[in-house]
Amino acid sequence: MKNFVNTAAWTSKPVNSRFVGRFLHVEAAKGSDFWQETHYGFKRDTGHALLAPVASVGALEVTFQADFDTLYDQAGLMIRSSETDWIKAGIEINDGLPHAATVVTHGRSDWSLSPVPEWANQEVTVRASWREGAVTIRVRKNQGPWSILRLAPMTFGPTTKAGLYVCSPERSELSVRFSRVTFGDADAGLHVAP
C-alpha cells in the first residue's frame, strides 16, 4: 500500500489522508464527486482519486471499509483516462442502503446499482481486470466469492491511470479505511475467478 501511495497522484486532494498502521485513512471533502451530465445536468470532477499509470492489459484490486450512512457516500476503485473518460466501481449509499455500484463515463455518465444491505460496515474488495478494450468489474465482501458486477468498454492509452477513490457529495467527515491496493495480471476469462 505505501509503495502505491508513494508513486500515485491525487486528482483532487482529500481533506486528509494518513496512514494508521498499515491502513490508509482518507477523509473526503463535502461536495466531492465524479459525474458527467446524465439526468442531473451537472459536470463534477471534484472527487478524490489516487491513481497510478497502467498498461493496456492488467488488473487492480482495492480493499476498503467505511461507515457509509449518507446518500451517495462512496468509495472503491477508478480507472481514468480523462475528465470525461473513466470508470468508478465500489460501494455507494442509495435509498438508505449500501449498493455495489458502477459508473461508466465516456462523455456522459451511466450508473448501475445492486443492493447489498448485508455488506454494511464490512470489508469490501473491488477488482477490475482489463484487456482488449474491455473491463470486467468484480466485487466481494470479506473473503467471500467474487460476483461479476459489470463488463464495460474502455480505451487504454498513455494517460490511463487506476487506483482508489472516495467521494462524499452530500456531507463532510466521510472517512474510508483502505487496506490494500494491488496491481496484477488480467483475468484469464470472463467466467474465470481470479
Rank of each mutant, 00 (worst) to 15 (best):
V57S: 06
G144F: 01
A52Y: 05
G144W: 00
N121G: 09
T182A: 15
Q65W: 01
T63V: 04
S172V: 03
S81L: 08
R131M: 05
S32D: 08
N16M: 09
I148V: 14
Q65V: 12
W130D: 00
S175C: 14
S32T: 06
S17P: 07
G107P: 05
S114K: 13
S82C: 04
F178A: 08
E132I: 00
K30D: 09
A89Y: 09
F68G: 04
S109F: 03
S32H: 02
L60P: 00
P115E: 09
R131I: 03
W119D: 08
T160E: 05
R131P: 09
A29Y: 01
R22S: 11
C167G: 10
A75C: 10
W119L: 08
W86Q: 02
G157R: 10
A75Y: 04
V135D: 00
S168M: 09
I137A: 03
M154L: 11
T182G: 13
R138A: 05
A128T: 05
N16K: 15
G144Q: 13
W111P: 01
P53A: 14
T11E: 10
F34W: 05
K141F: 01
V54Q: 07
A152S: 14
S147K: 01
E61Q: 15
Q36M: 12
Q36E: 12
S147R: 08
P194D: 12
E27R: 14
D85S: 13
V62M: 07
W146I: 09
V62D: 01
R150C: 02
A9W: 07
S12L: 06
V15W: 01
G133M: 05
F156C: 08
F178K: 03
V26M: 07
D95S: 11
R177W: 00
R18V: 08
T11H: 06
Y40I: 08
F68Y: 09
S179E: 11
K141Y: 00
M1E: 13
R138T: 10
T105D: 11
T46E: 06
K141S: 08
V126G: 03
R171L: 10
N3R: 06
V166T: 10
S81T: 13
W111S: 02
W119V: 05
A193F: 02
T159C: 09
E170M: 14
P53M: 12
D185S: 14
A134L: 15
E170A: 12
I148S: 10
K30T: 07
